[in-house]
Computed example of a mutant assay.
Amino acid sequence: MHEMSIALAVIGQVEEAAERAGDVTAVRSVRLEVGELAGVVPDSLSFCFELACAGTLLEGAELLADPVPGRARCAPCAHEWAVGMPPSLTCPRCGGAAGDLLSGRELRITAVHWEDGATPAAPTREPIAEER
């Protein structure tokens, strides 16, 4: 179950960001972009995240997953389409092979809301993790 390793990596990155920020007392929520082609089962990730947060600064934090649909662009005709699941990488317009997979592989932290000594639920404004 690679969702547990993903959950642990997310927790580690959030803890590092909280440490850099200083006086963080609790993490309330973590928002992720999860591409439909990333091979992640959202319910399994939520379950693993909840288990892995026990005893950490993130205990009780909510995991919010924003799905990102897979999209491709045909190199020969420049048509773009939703690839769906299972992915269809053949252009529905001309039958050519997809030249570019534009989205759908994302797995990144986009926001964290935490409490610190000064301000409750202060959100971060920049991603703290890059695409896997």
Rank of each mutant, 00 (worst) to 15 (best):
V34L: 13
V34C: 02
E36F: 00
L37W: 06
L37I: 00
A38Q: 07
A38R: 04
A38H: 07
V40F: 05
V40L: 01
V41C: 07
P42C: 11
P42A: 09
P42T: 11
P42W: 11
P42Y: 04
D43R: 06
S44G: 08
L45I: 11
L45D: 12
S46D: 14
S46A: 14
S46W: 03
S46Q: 15
F47P: 01
F47R: 00
F47C: 00
F49Y: 05
E50L: 05
L51S: 04
A52P: 09
A52T: 02
A52L: 00
C53L: 07
C53P: 06
C53A: 15
A54I: 08
A54E: 15
A54N: 05
A54F: 03
G55Y: 09
G55T: 10
T56M: 01
T56V: 07
T56S: 04
L57I: 10
L57F: 00
E59H: 14
E59A: 15
G60D: 09
G60T: 01
A61H: 06
A61M: 11
E62S: 05
E62W: 05
L63P: 02
L63F: 06
L63Y: 04
A65P: 02
A65W: 04
D66N: 10
D66Q: 12
P67I: 09
P67K: 12
P67G: 01
V68Q: 02
V68N: 08
P69M: 01
R71K: 11
R71D: 00
R71I: 00
A72T: 05
A72W: 01
R73P: 03
P76E: 10
P76T: 12
C77L: 08
C77P: 03
A78Q: 14
H79N: 06
H79M: 07
H79I: 03
E80V: 10
E80Q: 15
E80R: 13
G84Q: 08
G84C: 01
M85E: 13
M85D: 14
P86F: 11
P86Q: 00
P86I: 12
P86V: 07
P87G: 04
P87C: 06
P87D: 11
S88W: 01
S88Y: 01
S88R: 11
L89A: 03
L89T: 10
L89W: 07
L89Y: 13
L89S: 08
T90W: 00
T90K: 11
T90L: 12
T90E: 13
P92D: 06
P92H: 02
R93H: 13
R93E: 13
R93L: 12
C94S: 13
G95M: 10
G95A: 08
G96A: 09
G96F: 07
A97D: 13
A97Q: 13
A98C: 07
A98H: 12
D100H: 10
L101T: 05
L102Y: 06
S103I: 05
S103C: 02
S103A: 13
G104M: 12
L107Y: 00
R108C: 11
R108L: 15
I109K: 00
I109D: 00
T110A: 14
A111G: 08
A111K: 09
H113P: 04
H113W: 15
W114E: 03
W114L: 06
W114S: 07
E115I: 07
D116T: 08
G117S: 07
T119V: 14
T119L: 10
P120E: 10
P120A: 00
A121R: 14
A121V: 12
A122N: 13
P123E: 09
P123S: 09
T124V: 13
T124Y: 02
